[in-house]
Design a protein around this nucleic acid. Structure first.
Length: 592
RNA sequence: GAGGGGGUAGCUCAGUGGAUUAGAGCAGUAGCCUUCUAAGCUAUUGGUCGCGGGUUCGAUCCCCGCCCCCCUCGCCA
């Protein structure tokens, strides 16, 4: 029999089969298998309680019948999984050391786990839309979450077997370009793409232009005219716009590089400028869109707040009253393009939570539009996140009220990490300490963002972030470094020296082994709702389990079989830790 | 007013589709480095799981009502 990659799923499947032989249960029985408190079991099935209640049967007797039927199933092996009825009618499952050992010997490395996880999303074509910044601005703290969460979610989806395309849907066609172009002209500013301050200059010009147009209606008109010229293809404005976008993209790329963020496409709003006309036409043809106050809008009467009857009207405006497009238009055009050109089966949008209304309207409109035009709608998911708060409980800002620059954040984290590394490991060469510091600094920034539920706001605190203790990236990196150190000491590569490994034996070995197997459950959980914090929680628990093992059981010992099995546990710990860290976007370290 | 999110230990947060003592990290207390990196490990203090009802043998979790905080609500994205 092949070794189960994900025991919980296999047990659940067997329970469903077994239930068919139990008259009270039958087909459609949901075992409700879930991870259990480790003090009781590895997994527990709660489904019998509900079924017994519905059938007015004795839950314990029913659970016992189910267990008997389970034991009759082909593929059931009591030497691998112990089963018992507990409490009012729960069924507990406990993996035996033999099962743990078999799993550890079979699922050795990332390629095996990828293969095991591939059934989760194999065959899917997924487009992920992130980090999608607006053009002509420096990256600031507000860009941290889409970068970090987007990258983690992307890696998770790809790991689970999907064919993934990363599409950076930049905001490069908005109304702000009119103001910016006007400001550049008025200041007679010469845009030098080589200048390191070019983006700061553009930001300053935009601010000035924005203030000027607010103060003077004539200037506002002039700005609109510049935008109209741009959108109608005026060569001068187009050339200027292209330069701005290029400069902006280059600056963003410098940040992306530091976060290890890759993009396959940068198809911003401007890419869809000749594709919105079709959207207007089709939406009107299928009776979805109508004129309202001069704009073209879509109502969703079945949703109270998007209906015509709502107290405060919130239609989906797909074309502005001046005839120009907005993000609803381009998002609809983008949806069509991704469906037709990329053949997407799923699209994931990573943005902050304030855009929930927009995406609900987008998804509703897309659904009706595609239905009316006989197209297949991909699965659409909005992966949204909360705000990063400062110590005052409000969105984080600098003292002057400006957003904190992302580069400044990276630099400070790196600098503090460098001090720590130098303090702890003064003997390492300075070049290596700098590399370690950069890795830790960026990792700490990332992990702080990923480790709490993405839909929560979270408080940014240098103290917590840079403390390098507790549930942090440095703790995980350090746990892995300690594993690798053992192999280095023995002059072995990770994965060598485990021939003849016996099954986990001591309590700390068994606890560690069970935690290693729980990797599959953590993947399931993180993937389910695309919430990377489940993976963080898991990795922290794994590091803790390793810490206890490391303190209790010496790896380098005289008995060959004991050393072999402990080396096997070490190798799996390191491999799962490194795989997990990379899924989060964190590059592991050899030393620190 | 409508919609979304949150209210769990001093602080930052997990969790629970019903099981005994509700978890973790920080902070506090007490131990552990001649031995695989102590950025660590062990033990321990600390909580009416916002408030009030309901269903149930049993609710932090499900249902109803209420209170507080954050966000969004017609042409920005």
């Amino acid at each position: 029999m092949s070794v189960w990659f994900n025991p919980a799923r296999e047990i659940e499947a067997l329970l469903r089969q077994a239930a068919e032989a139990v008259p009270t249960l039958g087909k459609g029985f949901n075992p409700e298998l879930k991870p259990s408190d480790p003090r009781h079991a590895d997994f527990q099935a709660n489904g019998v309680l509900a079924a017994a209640k519905a059938a007015k049967a004795n839950p314990r007797a029913l659970a016992t019948s189910l267990v008997e039927a389970l034991r009759q199933q082909a593929g059931w092996d009591e030497t691998l999984v112990q089963v018992e009825v507990a409490g009012p009618g729960f069924i507990n499952f406990k993996l035996t050391p033999a099962a743990l050992g078999a799993w550890l010997r079979e699922y050795r490395d990332e390629s095996k786990w990828r293969a095991g996880a591939a059934r989760l999303m194999g065959g899917q074509k997924v487009i992920i839309d992130y980090p999608s910044p607006n053009t002509a601005k420096q990256m600031h703290v507000g860009h941290l979450r889409p970068i970090v969460i987007g990258e983690a979610v992307a890696r998770l989806i790809a790991f689970c077997g999907a064919d993934l395309i990363r599409d950076n849907h930049i905001g490069d066609w908005g109304t702000n370009f009119g103001i910016l172009i006007l400001a550049i002209r008025r200041a007679k500013f010469v845009l030098d793409p080589q200048s390191p301050e070019v983006l700061e200059d553009l930001e300053r010009l935009y601010k000035e232009g924005s203030a000027a147009t607010k103060a003077d209606p004539a200037l506002l008109e002039a700005a609109r005219a510049e935008l109209a010229k741009l959108q109608s293809g005026d060569p001068e404005n187009l050339a200027l716009w292209e330069q701005i976008v290029a400069v902006s993209n280059a600056a963003c790329q410098r940040i992306y590089d530091q976060f290890g963020l890759k993009t396959d496409y940068i198809l911003g709003e401007s890419f869809y400028r000749d594709k919105v006309e079709q959207v207007y036409t089709e939406l009107q043809q299928c009776g979805l869109a109508e004129e309202s106050e001069g704009a073209l809008v879509v109502w969703h009467d079945e949703e109270p707040r998007f209906s015509r009857q709502a107290e405060t009207k919130l239609p989906f405006i797909v074309r502005k009253k001046d005839g120009s497009s907005n993000y609803a238009s381009t998002d609809l055009a983008t949806l069509l393009y991704r469906t037709q050109h990329f053949k997407a089966t799923e699209i994931v949008y990573v943005t902050d939570g304030r855009q929930q209304d927009h995406f609900q309207q987008l998804f509703l409109t897309g659904k009706k539009w595609f239905q009316a035009t006989q197209r297949t709608l991909p699965r659409l998911r909005h992966v949204w996140f909360g705000t990063i708060l400062g110590s005052d409980g409000k969105a984080i800002k600098t003292k002057s009220g400006d957003p904190v620059r992302l580069q400044a954040l990276i630099d400070e984290a790196t600098q503090r990490a460098f001090e720590s590394v130098t303090n702890k490991s003064p003997d390492l060469p300075e070049v290596e300490r700098q590399h370690i510091a950069k890795t830790i600094g960026v990792a700490a920034l990332r992990y702080a963002d990923l480790s709490s539920n993405r839909t929560m706001d979270y408080s940014f605190s240098w103290e917590k972030l840079l403390s390098f203790e507790g549930n942090t990236a440095p703790y995980l990196l350090y746990a892995n470094v300690r594993v690798r150190s053992i192999f280095r000491k023995l002059n072995l590569a990770v994965g060598q020296g485990e021939t003849g490994a016996s099954d986990p034996t001591t309590p700390t070995e068994i606890a560690l082994a069970r935690k290693l197997l729980a990797f599959t459950a953590a993947l399931d959980q993180a993937l389910e709702e695309l919430r990377p914090h489940h993976l963080c929680t898991y990795l922290h628990e794994l590091a803790s389990a390793y810490g206890a093992f490391y303190a209790a059981d010496n790896v380098i010992v005289d008995e060959p079989d004991v050393q072999a099995r402990r080396l096997m546990l070490c190798a799996r710990t390191s491999a799962i830790m490194e795989t997990g860290l990379r899924l989060l976007g964190i590059e592991p370290l050899e030393r620190m």
